[in-house]
Design a protein around this nucleic acid. Sequence first.
DNA 1: CTGAAAGCGCTTACAG
DNA 2: CTGAAAGCGCTTACAG
Lengths: 357, 357
Amino acid sequence: MPSEPRIKSDSHSETGGQRRSRASGRVTLSDVAEAAGVSSMTVSRALRGERRVAPALVEKVREVAASLGYVPDLAARALASQKSTQVLVLIPMLSNTLFVDVIEAVHKVLFAQGYHMLIGVTHYDPQEEEQLLRAYLPMRPAGLLLTGFDHSEAAQQLLAANPVPRVHLMELREPEMSADSYCVGFSQTAAGAEMTRHLLGQGYRRIAFCGAQLDARVMQRLEGYRTVLKQAGLYDPGLEMLNPERSSLALGARQFEALIKSEPAVDAIFFCNDDIAQGALLEAARMGIKVPEQVAIAGFNDLPGSDQMVPPLTTIRTPRDEVGERAANMLLQLLDGKAVKEPRVDLGFRLVPRASA
Amino acid sequence: MPSEPRIKSDSHSETGGQRRSRASGRVTLSDVAEAAGVSSMTVSRALRGERRVAPALVEKVREVAASLGYVPDLAARALASQKSTQVLVLIPMLSNTLFVDVIEAVHKVLFAQGYHMLIGVTHYDPQEEEQLLRAYLPMRPAGLLLTGFDHSEAAQQLLAANPVPRVHLMELREPEMSADSYCVGFSQTAAGAEMTRHLLGQGYRRIAFCGAQLDARVMQRLEGYRTVLKQAGLYDPGLEMLNPERSSLALGARQFEALIKSEPAVDAIFFCNDDIAQGALLEAARMGIKVPEQVAIAGFNDLPGSDQMVPPLTTIRTPRDEVGERAANMLLQLLDGKAVKEPRVDLGFRLVPRASA
DNA sequence: CTGAAAGCGCTTACAG
DNA sequence: CTGAAAGCGCTTACAG
C-alpha cells in the first residue's frame, strides 16, 4: 500500500525541494494522481467523467481529489485541449433592461453546459466594440454572441481573422446577404410598422415619431413607421424628432414637451423605446395634458414599469428572453460542430395595446 | 537575409508536415520569431513592452506580428506566468441599475489596466453564489469583488481554500470583526436612520417601512429605521411591511395599496428601494391619494426616473459609481502586492429631499 | 540586450 | 481500462 491519501502533505515536500520549482503551491492533477496511486491521465479522465475508467477508480479518484481540495485549472485545460469554455457576449447597454433579459437567458443556457460568459458593453459605440473585441479575442472564446450587424470595418476584419462560431442577436439579416450569418431576432422594421398601423387604426392622423440613441434598430423601427405613413398619405417629416442622446426618462420628458410646443396638432406619438415613452407620460401629467384624450403615447419593448404607468403604456412586446435562449442554443450547436437547420430565426413580436394609445 | 516576413506562408508548410502536430493553425509566438529572425523570447518581451529590448527590434517585431495577424494566447500566458487577467465580480442582480453602475465603474478602472471582468449574478441567492464560485474559481481569477458579507458556509470555505485578493462592495464591516477584510461602501444602517430622521423632521409621526427582497442591506436599513423610531417613542411593528419577493414597481404598488388599507392612519412610508417607491407613487395616483399631502413617500438609492416622478421622489443618493471605482482601485493595489492604507472605505450617502416627502 | 532550457497544468494521440 | 510521451503557447529563471 504505497499510496494512502494520508501522505498528501509529504508528497509535496519529498520532491519539492529538489527541482528549481515555479510551482504555484496549488494542488495539481499529479498531486491527486500520486495520492490515489494512479496516473494523472486516469485522474484527468475520471474527473471529467469520461467513460472507459473503472467505476471503482472513478470513485476513489473523486474522493482523493475532494479531500485534497483539488480545483482544475481551466487555463491549462484550454491550452491543452485547444478548447475554451468562454463565450463572448457583446451588448450595447446594461442599463437597458432589454439586454439584461437577453444576458440572463444566455447565461442560463450556456452555464448549464459548462460555458462561461464574458460580457462586453459597447455603449452603442462601434469603436468600443472594436476595442472589446481586441481585448477579448486573445482569451480565445469558443463562440461569440453579437448584437445586430452593425460593426466597424476593423471589427469585421478582426472577426474574419479569428474564425469563431457566432450568432447575431435582435436583428435579422436576409439570408442572401451573407450565407454564413446566424441570427436570432425579429424584424424591427415590421414591428415599427405594426405599431404605426395600430395608431392609424385607433384613428390618429398626425402621428409623430420620437427616437433616441439612433442605433441601427431604432432606425429600422423608424423605417417601418415611415413606410406605413407614406402609404397612408400621412407622412410628415416635421413630425420626426430624432435625438442621438442616450434614451432615458428625462430625455423622453424633454422630447414630449418640445414636440407639443412645436407641433401642437400632433395627436399621437410613437416613442422608439419605453423609457422615453414613460418619461413622456410623466411630463404629460406635469403639463396637465390628458393621455390619450389629447395626445396618445406609445412605446417599444414593454419594459418593466410600462404596465404600471398612469395610464398604462401601449407598446410592443419584444421576445428578448427567447432571443437569448435560442441564440445560446444555436451557438451550442455550432460549438458541437452540428449543422443548424434554421440559421435565421424570426421570433416575431407582439403588440400590447393598453390605455395610452 | 534568411527571414523576410514574406516567407510566412512557407514557414508553416515547411515544418508542419513533419511533426505529429496538434497545432491550431493560429499564428504563434514562434511564427513571429521565425519571420522576424529573432528568438521567441525577444518577441515575447518586445510585444509586452518590456524594457531591455533594442528599440529597433521592438519596432520590427511589432510590424511582423501585425502583418502576420498575431494574437497572443491569454490562456497560455496565464499558465506560464501563473497570473490571470480576470477578475471575478459577483453581484446580486443586473436588473437593479444600482449594480449596473457599480459594474460599469469597475470595468472602466480594471479594463484600463488590462484586466477583464467575469460577471456573476447571484440573484440574491447564497446557493447560486456558491455555484458561481465553484464554476469561476477554476478560471483562477486574479481577484474577487463580492457584494456584501453575507456568504454561505460553503462559499466561505471555497474562498478560504482559494486565497485570492478580494474586496467587498456596498457594505462596511467593522475592522475588529475580521482584520483582513477589505471593503468599500457606506453604512446602510446609518442611511436608513437618516431617512427616518428626515421624515420625523418633516413632521410625520406614523412612519411605515416597506421592504422587499429582504437581503442583508435592506435589513440594515430597517435596523436604522427601527432605532430612530424607538428613540422617538414612535416605533410600531404594525407599520412594517416586509416582503421577500423581488423588488419591482408592481410590488410597490401592491404594498402601497395593502398598507393604506390596513393602516389608514399612516402618514409617511419609507420604501427600501426606489423601484417600489416609484410603484407606490403610481398606485397613489391611480387611487387618487395625494402625495405628500395625504401620505408621504420616500425611497432609497436615487435610481433613474426618481427625479422624473410626479411628484419627484425623496430618496437617498448612494455612491455606487464611487464604490465601483474605489473598490476596483483597491483591488488593483492588492494585485500589485501593495499595502492598502485604508482597507475600509466609507463613502457615505446623501439625502435627496424632493417633493414626495 | 538576447537566447536556450525548462516548466506552467493540463489533454491528445498512441500503445498496450 | 490504463499509462508514458509529447505538446498546447506562452513566461520564468538563468546565462551570457
